[in-house]
Structures are given as structure tokens and as C-alpha cells.
């Protein structure tokens, strides 16, 4: 399907206070790809993601999702296609209970009540949070919140999953669980992360942002092999690619 191509052309974004957050960003992501966007703090990762579902409007340039250019008219359709999980789960979980929160999207899609209930049940099981259904979000732990936040997006059956720092704040077990979950997702995945080991595990392709521009775009292994590039962009090799600090042997 040409349907789920994400195309970003000459994207520029300047915030109201004059900060140039993105400058001439270009890339194309095809259906089913799993792509990481990495870069130092303030490199522009979150800004870039917020363009993908039309929350921010480009100062210049163009974005196409599938066959549609991103315009006001195509916005509802695009928001349904692109499921976005935000950095802070508290921003995403605003309804009084986990059930209501996960059901929020499907209800807005106009689905009948029974189908909504079934969907909620399914996705909560998928993320291992079925037992939390009736709890209010403020009684959840950080990891539980994250899982529910992902469920809220999965319940809309998006074709493109976009996540801002999905593993931040998770304990090792919850992180492992999340990695499994993301690996099983069949459609396009786009993440930003500072968890480079996760990037290595999940993404065959990586885009490096540096001060609002694309510094590199290619196979993940290749990028993590380029020490000069990593140093310039204030990044490091993932731990699993670094030498073993105890015995001194490389991988």
C-alpha cells in the first residue's frame, strides 16, 4: 500500500519566540518500516513528531501521509491513521478511568458501544493491563501509565505508530515487555529515543537529528559504527556495542 508512506519535504519550523527548531528536514518512510529518530536534547525530535499528526504546522515545507498532503481538510483522516504516544503519559491519560481513557478514541470514531468495549478489552490485554480497567490513572505507576497510554492509541487501530521516548521511566521488565509489544506491531513505527539499545533492537533504520537538521539517515548498525558522527551529535554507541567494561573485550 502506498497508503502509509510518510514523506517529509524541506520541513522547517520556527517557534513563536524565534527558535529555529527544524531546518530543511527531508526523509521518506515506507510502510512497515521501523525507524528511530535520535539526537541530543533540543535537537528537534519532539518538534518533528508533532508535525506528523498535524499538531504543529510547518513554517515551510510539506508533509504527506499516504496519498494526502497534510492540510486542514485531511487532518481528521490523518489523525486516525497516525497514532501518537506522547512523552509524558499524564498528558495522554485525561479521562477518569483506564476504561474511559482507552474508549475515548473509539467513541470519537463513532463505533457502537459493544464494539468499543470489545476493543478496549482486547488492547488492554495486548499491553498486559487488563486488570487496570476500572482504575483511575492517578493510581497507576509510571510503567502502567505508559502501557495504558499505548493502549489508548492502539485502540484506534492506527496504521502508523509514532512514539516520543517510549521507554523513558520504565523499569527493565516493563521496558522488555514494551519492546516485545512494539516488535509485534505490524505497521509503520517511528520512535524518538535516548535508549540507544532499544533503537538497536527494534529499528533497522535510524535518522540522526542535529540542531534541527538531518545529519545522517541510514541502517542503524552503520550509524552506530560511525564514531565521528556520534561524537559530533552528542551521542554514544549503545552499551551493547561498546566493549565489555569488566573483561575489556569488544563485542
Amino acid at each position: 500500500m502506498s497508503h502509509h508512506i510518510v514523506e517529509v519535504k524541506h520541513l522547517q519550523h520556527i517557534y513563536a519566540d524565534g527558535t529555529v527548531a527544524l531546518q530543511d528536514v527531508n526523509f521518506t518512510i515506507h510502510h512497515g518500516e521501523s525507524v528511530a529518530i535520535i539526537g541530543a536534547n533540543g535537537a528537534g525530535k519532539s518538534t518533528l513528531l508533532l508535525h506528523l499528526n498535524g499538531y504543529l504546522t510547518p513554517t515551510a515545507g510539506e508533509i504527506r501521509i499516504g496519498d494526502f498532503p497534510l492540510t486542514k481538510k485531511t487532518l481528521p483522516e490523518i489523525r486516525r491513521t497516525v497514532g501518537m504516544v506522547f512523552q509524558d503519559a499524564d498528558d495522554q491519560l485525561f479521562m477518569p478511568t483506564v476504561f474511559d481513557d482507552v474508549a475515548f478514541g473509539p467513541f470519537n470514531l463513532g463505533l457502537p458501544v459493544d464494539e468499543v468495549k470489545q476493543r478496549v478489552k482486547d488492547v488492554l490485554e495486548q499491553v498486559g493491563a487488563a486488570h487496570l480497567q476500572e482504575k483511575p490513572p492517578y493510581h497507576l505507576s509510571g510503567g502502567e501509565k505508559k502501557r495504558v497510554a499505548i493502549a489508548t492509541v492502539l485502540s484506534m487501530s492506527p496504521d502508523i505508530l509514532v512514539m516520543d521516548e517510549p521507554t523513558s521511566g520504565l523499569d527493565p521488565y516493563a521496558r522488555r515487555q514494551l519492546l516485545g509489544l512494539l516488535r509485534d506491531f505490524r505497521h509503520t513505527r517511528i520512535f524518538t529515543s535516548h535508549d540507544l539499545d532499544m533503537v538497536l533492537e527494534l529499528c533497522e533504520r535510524t535518522i540522526v537529528l542535529h540542531r534541527g537538521t538531518v545529519k545522517a539517515d541510514g541502517p542503524t548498525l552503520e550509524i552506530f559504527g560511525d564514531e565521528a558522527l556520534l561524537a559530533e551529535c552528542r551521542l554514544e554507541k549503545p552499551l551493547s556495542m561498546q566493549g565489555c567494561p569488566v573483561c575489556g573485550r569488544g563485542k
Binding site: Y55, V82, F94
Partner: peptide, 17 residues
């Protein structure tokens, strides 16, 4: 939050069971 609501198809109406 508003962004998260829009991302999930919010059009100003709340539905509840």
C-alpha cells in the same frame, strides 16, 4: 493534553457509558 485529545479524534463531545 489538548493535542492528545485531538490525536484521538476529539471534536468537542464526550461520550460515556
Amino acid at each position: 493534553i489538548h493535542m492528545a485529545m485531538l490525536a484521538r479524534g476529539f471534536t468537542g463531545e464526550f461520550h460515556s457509558r
